[in-house]
Design a protein around this nucleic acid. Structure first.
Lengths: 200, 200
DNA sequence: TATAACATTGCATTGGCTGCAATAAACTAT
DNA sequence: ATAGTTTATTGCAGCCAATGCAATGTTATA
């Protein structure tokens, strides 16, 4: 018991070393991928830089991309989930807040944005990863939605907005819940946009 | 010159054999992936089944997933692009029509839907591939939109709806443009959905 | 029939990724 | 402090995906 508490709290030399290793791998991966791109970086390079064996690499991250972004085990941390459970207002607003306002995602937004603006190839991979977390978001959303279908709709809408801000994000601004909401408003407005003539 | 025309027209023994090889690889990949899942199928198995060398496989498809879905070189075929350029009405409607109404996508919808319903792991990969074609869609949309930003918004909205129908699609129905449009309508309605209390 | 074009293949190689078993370090309890 | 347990790290052996190159055989052209 006391062992578990100690580990969770982050005390202990062993735990500190673990965090240190994780951090070393992430920093090396971020730096190298930012400098040479994802394809231009091998896992062996990252390991050399971080001074760990390539076997150890996979004890911490499942892929290069995850290491570069420092993506954690759980896509939604407890604090963000708690805030979502206690939120008031509209479902979509609360989801926006949970995704960019707090949680692991927010802490990594700046790096994430920097990487994808400088290396657009990453977007494809990133999109696959976001899809993987989709399920977790829907799970949470279902707790506060009037139906499972509604939860799915809301999450899809918000993730679409996220992907837009990731694509557009040249301005270096870190996405906020407000930006996300206004993107969603734009998404709705475009529904009625008419066709215009081609450059004929 | 005449050589090129001949090849494009699809005449000639050489061209027929090529299509045959392509088809054999696709059929084998589809069958095996449907039976054993993506991870449970190796490219060598597919090649054995299709009676080609594994080197030949990569002359036709860049990945297992692409082979299983039979994804072609160009994500949008000429006919669908032409229809889009000639469309009238709203931008979003025209995009829906282009994506599911015709083109390579439509021809593969049934198989695609079958695969992902039976093997949800595929959704992640599929999402990455859809993102890859996103650029091409935006290119086309820009020709008929009043701004590049508007094109991006419209494509994002439609792709979100596509991913929803792919996720939900248990009913075996092939998505139509109408289904896509009604999904988009649902997306808009969910914007104002209120939060409900958790199971507390 | 000669020759140009090209589809197919084998081979070698690189890189991502995993399982297993050994080692060394950190923790626990006495 | 010591003995015993846990566990992070590592090396190794191996599978699979993917690419480049050069050789071979088949189809097209003239």
């Amino acid at each position: 018991m006391s062992t578990l508490v100690t580990l969770d709290a982050g005390d202990g030399l062993r735990e500190r070393k673990k965090q240190q290793t994780r951090r070393a791998i992430h920093e090396a991966a971020y730096r190298l991928v930012d400098e040479h791109g994802l394809e231009g970086t091998t896992i062996d390079q990252i390991c050399r830089e971080a001074e760990v064996s390539s076997r150890t690499f996979f004890n911490y991250f499942p892929s290069k991309m995850a290491a570069a972004l420092g993506i954690p085990e759980e896509p939604v941390d407890d604090e963000a989930a708690a805030r979502f459970r206690a939120a008031t207002g509209s479902l979509v607003d609360a989801l926006c807040d949970m995704i960019v306002g707090g949680g692991q995602f927010a802490a990594r937004q700046a790096r994430l944005k920097g990487l994808v603006t400088r290396h657009p190839e990453l977007i494809r991979t990133l999109s696959g990863m976001m899809t993987a977390t989709r399920g977790r978001f829907i799970e949470l959303a279902t707790e506060r939605a009037s139906s499972a279908a509604e939860a799915e709709l809301a999450v899809t809408l918000v993730l679409a907005a996220v992907s837009l801000t990731v694509h557009n994000g040249g301005d270096g601004q870190v996405p906020t819940a407000e930006l996300l909401m206004s993107t969603i408003d734009s998404l709705e407005r475009v529904r009625s946009a008419p066709l215009v003539d081609g450059r004929g």
